[in-house]
Design a protein around this nucleic acid. Structure first.
Ligand SMILES: [Mn+2]
Ligand SMILES: [Mn+2]
Ligand SMILES: [Mn+2]
Ligand SMILES: [Mn+2]
Lengths: 218, 218
DNA sequence: CGAAGGATTTTATTTGTTCAAAATCAGCAA
DNA sequence: TTGCTGATTTTGAACAAATAAAATCCTTCG
């Protein structure tokens, strides 16, 4: 059985892998994402490679093997279904569920997971708009535009927030920018690095480019 | 923060402590209950004593300190609320929940726990009839009679099953002996070690003395 | 009393995970 | 081609848990 630690590494590698298609994930990325010192990830990379879960190229990075990816997708499925469950069934706040799921994802049995899945009506996205892998390990890989690269004037719908930090999520929530919200960009100032848009409720808001990059729309 | 291992030790010590009031819990009991070798518990006993969670008398055993008991009761509360949650909300089988709860009890936050508590309507007993400690750490210590020590003919109601082994629970379930079931003892054969009773539905059943001791009634 | 036997503790090792700090490497800049 | 610099790997150590097997300690029995 994979330990929680191993599951966290695999999931994180999967996440990094999806960002940058093709190339191996450098050890430094993994280390900073998991909050450990770089040397630790080197040790773990070797041990994961020994177990056949990743391919490890020293000084280059890691890539999940088929088996590693299967496992990682399963962890990700658990994580996202749990997040939705915490919001829908237990009524937890949008911004506090990530941390909870981070622990629960390692102890939920398949049986419980499928019960949750059914109770939620077999959902396809989690509360942040992230796609939920199926039990078979398929995941919707459709790539969405982020707010800062969209044309002015057109009606857009927010479909995903790519940052789980509680304070960022609280900002999103306080301004009604959750997945599903509709808006039109009214102005984009490349020089100042700002972007102004109006929500369907009439409110107008200006945010920075870095925040805009974390908001995906369709 | 207490690790899962520490939490398991404390909970187990509490459970043993409640069986035999007063005297310290011998290391051998703890070891066999947790499925570890005796030496391991000695090491742990010292370390728990260092943390002020138990009083350890070498060659005698351990006893929870006030702080240790508080922690243990909190773990027990989580365990039992989770069990009820798994049955009531997720519809899991009566006999499979103990193992699930054994893992979940270590990763559920207070926030989630109180949500579950509310969702279940602030219950006082778990699916096996075991009392659920309050958030403050109070637990109903009322002692019940077990089936083998009850008078013949009187109407009795099963209120607690004191064995979490799946196969025993499945036996209980298959014969409708869950908490709440009513029965009358019709015959007790001390020599043969058997006990015969009739359920409210008319069914008659004979069980051994060892099984009868695990069924508590009022 | 004195030995036997069972329970408990010690001791030496193992596995998994982590850190700190020194060593090494690879790519770029002069 | 060197040498620098930042990323990565190595090395040495620590901590949490656990085992196996030897040593020790009580309690009881003849
Ligand atoms: Mn996690
Ligand atoms: Mn999410
Ligand atoms: Mn447990
Ligand atoms: Mn129970």
């Amino acid at each position: 059985m994979a330990t929680s630690t191993v599951e966290n590494y695999l999931k994180q590698i999967l996440l990094e892998q999806q960002r940058v298609e093709g190339s191996p994930v450098p050890m430094g990325k993994v280390a900073s994402a998991l909050g450990v010192v770089p040397g630790t990830t080197t040790t773990m990379a070797k041990s994961l490679a020994d177990s056949g879960l990743v391919n490890y190229a020293p000084r280059k990075g890691v890539r999940l093997t088929e088996e590693g990816e299967k496992l990682a997708l399963h962890v990700l499925r658990r994580h996202r279904l749990i997040e939705l469950f915490l919001v829908e069934i237990l009524g937890l706040g949008w911004s506090e569920i990530h941390e909870e799921a981070e622990k629960l994802e390692h102890v939920i049995s398949d049986k419980v997971l499928e019960k949750i899945d059914a109770l939620l009506g077999f959902p396809t996205v989690d509360p942040h708009g992230d796609p939920i892998p199926t039990a078979k390990g398929k995941i919707d890989a459709r790539s969405l535009e982020n707010l800062s690269g969209c044309p002015l004037g057109e009606p857009l719908r927010i479909s995903r927030i790519t940052d789980q930090a509680p304070e960022f999520l609280r900002f999103i929530e306080n301004n009604g920018l959750q997945p599903g919200a509709e808006l039109k960009i009214s102005e984009q100032n490349r020089v100042a690095g700002t972007l102004t848009f109006s929500l369907s409720k009439g409110k107008t808001l200006t945010i920075g480019a870095s925040a805009a990059k974390k908001i995906l729309v369709e």
